[in-house]
């Protein structure tokens, strides 16, 4: 499967815990480490963040979480195996956690 380099999609996830510059982030039940040194606002466990190539880049405000998650839910649940957009999202989840060794 091809891997992304561009980013229009990114992937949202919920912060479970934080240790220094690394947060553990829950992506649909899969928990992975994400760097939080370039996120746009202070974040805390429970916050949702948008992530790209293993970095959180935006804190998603609580009132926008449901809207933001909806498309990704649909992409991941309903798209076929060859779908480019779903593949982008899966690659972004894979990219998280690629820097824990």
């Amino acid at each position: 499967m091809q891997r992304l380099v561009g980013m229009c999609l990114g992937v949202p996830g919920r912060i479970v815990s934080i240790d220094g510059d690394i947060a553990l982030v829950d992506f649909w039940g899969v928990v992975k480490p994400v760097r939080i040194d370039v996120v746009d606002a202070p974040v805390a466990p429970g916050d949702y963040v948008l992530n790209h190539v293993g970095f959180a880049i935006r804190r998603i405000s609580p009132e926008d979480v449901a809207d933001t998650l909806a498309l990704y839910d649909e992409l991941l649940r309903r798209a076929g195996a060859g779908d480019l957009m779903a593949a982008d999202v899966r690659s972004e989840i894979d990219a998280a956690g690629s820097h824990d060794g």
Partner: peptide
């Protein structure tokens, strides 16, 4: 090597 991101290349 195919990597998902810069951080993985550093590893």
């Amino acid at each position: 090597d195919v990597v998902y991101g810069a951080a993985q290349a550093v590893e």
